[in-house]
Design a protein around this nucleic acid. Structure first.
Lengths: 189, 189
DNA sequence: AGTGCCGATGTCAGTCACTGACAACAGGAG
DNA sequence: CTCCTGTTGTCAGTGACTGACATCGGCACT
C-alpha cells in the first residue's frame, strides 16, 4: 500500500545510489537523479530535504528497532549491558541488509559530505538511545555517557564487519564488547 | 609575524562569529561576513574552503596537542590509560579558551549544519588519536576501539563542562573516567 | 632606479543546491 | 458532476561555491 505511494521515492533512492557509484557523488546533480526517474528536480527536493538525505532513509528503522529493544531488555541489566543486549538483538536486521549497506558504506566512507551526514545520523541515534535509557530510569548524564560508550563499540563492530565480513557480525560484536571491557578494566587504575 | 599576514583571516573569523550570533548562521551570507571585514566574498572563500569552516580553525591546535601528549605519555600505560592521561594534560589549553569556546559551542549546538561539521572534526580528531596510538605499537583495531571509547568519554566531559562550568573541567574528566570504568565493569558479565 | 616575480585580492561569469509561489492534473468522496 | 486533496510541473530567485583572468603592492636581484 505504501509500495505505490512511495514508488517515486524508492526509485529516486535507487537512481541516486546508482549514479553516485557511476559518476561519484559530487559529479551527480540532483536534476540528473530526478531525470533518470522521469521527474523534475523540484520533485526530488519534495521527497528529500537535501541531496545527501536520499541515502539515509533507513535510519529511522534502525532507531525504532533499537529503542524498542532497549525498552524490552531484561530489567536487571545495567545501562551498558542493556545497550549491548539491544545491539545483539538487532543483528538479523543488519545482516539482512548487508548487500545494500555494504556498498553504501563504501560510498559514504569515500565521500566527505556523505560521511558528515552519517556522523550526524549516528549522533541522532545516540540521542535516541539516551532517551530510551532514561525511560528505564537511568539518570541523564549517566545515560548519555553509556550511550556514547555503547555506540562507540557498536559503530566500531559494525564498520569492521561491513569492511570485512570474515568473522560474522555476531562474532564482531562479542569480540568488541569483550575488548571494550578489557580496555577499560586495564585503564581503571 | 603571522599577525599581519593572517590579519584578514582572523578578522573574518571574528566577523563571522559576531554575525552568526546576531542574525543566526542561516541568515548570514558569506558576502556579508566579507563585507564587514572590507573584502570580497571571493576572498572569504580563499581563506576558508566553505562557510562552516570559518568556525573550525582551532581544531588543528587541539589535534597537535593531543597527539603530542600521546607520544609523550608514560610507556607503561595501556591504550585507554594513555588517552586519559593525554586528555588530562590538555586541560589548561581548554580552560584558557573557555571564554571563546563556550558561546561557540552554544551556537554550534543549535545550528545543525555547524553541528555536523563539528562531528566531522571530532571524527578526524579520533582518527589522529588512532594514528598516535599506533605509533606506540597498539594494534589497529584495538587502537580504533580505544580511540572511540576514549573520545566518547572526553567529548562527554568537555560538553558537560561547556554547558555548566560548575565542577571544573578536571573534576568532570575524573568523574567521567571513573564512571566509564564503573559502567563498563558493571556490563562485564 | 629599474625590472621581474609573487602572493593576496578584485572582478566576472557560471554551476548547482535549494526554496517559495502558483498552476495543472488525477483520483476519490460526496 | 463536482469538490477536495495530494502529487507534480513550472518558473523565478537566492546563496554557496569555483575557475579564469586582471591588478596591485612589496621584495629581491641587478
Amino acid at each position: 500500500m505504501d509500495r505505490l505511494e512511495d514508488d517515486v521515492r524508492v526509485r529516486l533512492r535507487q537512481a541516486a545510489m546508482a549514479l553516485f557509484e557511476e559518476r561519484g557523488y559530487e559529479r551527480t546533480t540532483a536534476a540528473a537523479i530526478a531525470a533518470r526517474v522521469g521527474v523534475t528536480e523540484r520533485t526530488f527536493f519534495r521527497h528529500f530535504p537535501d541531496k545527501r538525505e536520499v541515502l539515509f532513509d533507513g535510519e529511522a528503522v534502525l532507531r525504532t528497532a533499537l529503542t524498542a529493544a532497549i525498552a524490552e531488555a531484561p530489567g536487571a541489566l545495567g545501562p551498558l549491558a542493556t545497550l549491548f543486549w539491544s545491539f545483539r538483538s538487532i543483528r538479523p536486521l543488519l545482516e539482512n541488509n548487508r548487500h545494500y549497506s555494504e556498498p553504501r558504506h563504501a560510498l559514504i566512507a569515500r565521500t566527505p559530505p556523505l560521511y558528515e551526514r552519517e556522523l550526524a545520523k549516528t549522533a541522532a541515534l545516540t540521542d535516541a538511545l539516551v532517551d530510551a535509557l532514561r525511560l528505564r530510569g537511568v539518570a541523564d548524564l549517566r545515560a548519555a555517557l553509556a550511550a556514547r560508550t555503547g555506540m562507540a563499540a557498536f559503530g566500531h563492530a559494525v564498520i569492521a564487519w561491513l569492511e570485512d565480513p570474515e568473522p560474522g557480525l555476531g562474532e564482531r560484536l562479542e569480540r568488541t564488547f569483550a575488548e571494550t571491557v578489557a580496555l577499560v578494566a586495564e585503564a581503571g587504575h
